[in-house]
Amino acid sequence: MNRRSLHRLAAVTAVAALVLPATACGGSDDPAPGAPATVVLGFSAWPGWFPWQVAQEQGLFAKNGVTVELKYFDSYTDSLTALATGNLSANSQTLGDTLTSISGGAQQTIVLVNDNSTGNDQIIAKPGINTVADLKGKRVAVEQGTVDHYLLLLALKTAGLTEADIALKPMLTDAGAAAFTTGEVDAVGAFAPFTTTALGLAGSKAIATSADFPGAIPDHLVFTAAFVKDHPTEVQAVVKTWFDTLAWIKANPDAAIDIMAKKAGVSAADYKSYDAGTTIFTREQNLAAFTPGSTPANLDFQAKSIAEFMVSAKLVDSAPPLDGLLEPKFVQAVSP
């Protein structure tokens, strides 16, 4: 599982405009604008996205009058590619990955905040390293261009350091976690469940987490811009289903956890251990996030911040256009 990468779509999205006309979700075989349409919705392994499985198994999409073909991806990157090339109507993905797709030419619209990472992304250090400031001169493994790379830079900045002050060791997240446990590196940036692997090193601990930077790592439901334009009724029904699903989960917590844990391939106890590190967003939290502002809690501010990171890390040549990225009207239309 390789979730939350900011840089893997460059080649795909650069040719998205060429392949979209021939794809299932953006091509000539699509229903006419306004006609009923099936929503092909992708998601992958992250606690904030497993509620979609609950929605499917409990028939909540159908209750809202929308036909949804739910597609689970073992590879998160594959789900990003599928949306960028028009083979999905919508996907659950990070803000950073959405910006990367847009940089490559894809036209996508965020209609819902699924969650914020509030601890499940971590900078984990070996014994003897107790603060971020202690990372100076140390070997730190992180997958370049990921949100955990972004988290590392945020943490370094708060400690008065930059990436130049550490010995960065670019590694895939799973490899980095493994290298940390064998002493190959002194610290690692990772997300759950690879945090569990890293913390298997005796005496290791998280010295910074996404909980320290509220709003820095948001996850969303993202539609192709064309689908939003042509089929707003279906988009509205899917957004309403999300909040209906959260209500069902609240009323049936044990049954919901069993459904989500089974899909995740972990025990119910293991799944519960990830709950605190992922904050599922209510309608009220969605409304607050979509409100323009100048804090990390505001999506427009966070999008600009991540775009600047992408340019500074040389992941893109120029900041992606943000016009039309955020569309709050579907959340606003859901009854409280």
Rank of each mutant, 00 (worst) to 15 (best):
N2R: 05
R4S: 14
H7A: 00
R8P: 02
A16K: 04
V19Y: 13
L20E: 15
P21G: 07
P21Y: 10
A22D: 15
D29K: 11
D30H: 02
P31N: 08
P31D: 10
A32G: 14
G34L: 03
A35R: 04
A37T: 10
L41S: 12
L41Y: 12
G42V: 08
G42Y: 10
F43K: 00
F50L: 12
A55Q: 01
Q56W: 03
E57R: 15
E57F: 11
Q58K: 15
G59D: 05
L60Q: 01
V68M: 13
E69K: 13
K71L: 14
S75N: 06
Y76E: 09
N87S: 11
S92E: 15
T94H: 12
T94I: 03
T94D: 05
D97A: 12
D97M: 07
T98Q: 05
S103C: 12
A106F: 08
Q108A: 04
T109K: 14
V111F: 06
V111K: 09
N114Q: 13
T118N: 14
T118W: 07
Q122S: 03
I124Q: 02
P127K: 10
N130P: 00
A133I: 07
A133M: 05
D134H: 01
L135N: 05
V142G: 01
V147Q: 06
A155H: 10
A159L: 10
E163F: 02
E163P: 03
A167P: 00
A167V: 13
K169H: 10
L172V: 00
T173Q: 14
D174F: 02
A177S: 15
A177E: 11
A178H: 07
T181D: 02
V185M: 08
A187I: 05
A187R: 03
P193N: 12
F194Y: 13
A198M: 05
A202N: 13
G203K: 02
S204T: 01
S210F: 07
I217R: 01
I217D: 01
F223I: 07
K229Q: 14
P232N: 00
E234H: 02
V235Q: 13
A237S: 07
A237M: 09
V238M: 11
V239K: 06
K240D: 04
K240A: 14
W242Q: 08
D244R: 09
A247P: 00
N252C: 03
D254G: 06
M260S: 10
A264K: 05
V266Y: 07
S267D: 11
A268R: 12
A268C: 07
S273K: 15
Y274F: 15
A276G: 14
G277C: 09
T278P: 13
T278D: 13
T279Q: 14
F281A: 12
T282R: 09
Q285V: 02
A288K: 11
A289E: 03
A289N: 08
T291A: 15
P296Q: 12
A297F: 06
A297L: 15
D300Q: 01
A303Q: 09
K304W: 08
K304D: 10
E308G: 13
S312Q: 11
S312E: 09
A313C: 01
A313Y: 05
P320D: 09
P320L: 08
P321Q: 09
D323E: 14
L325I: 01
L325P: 00
K329Q: 08
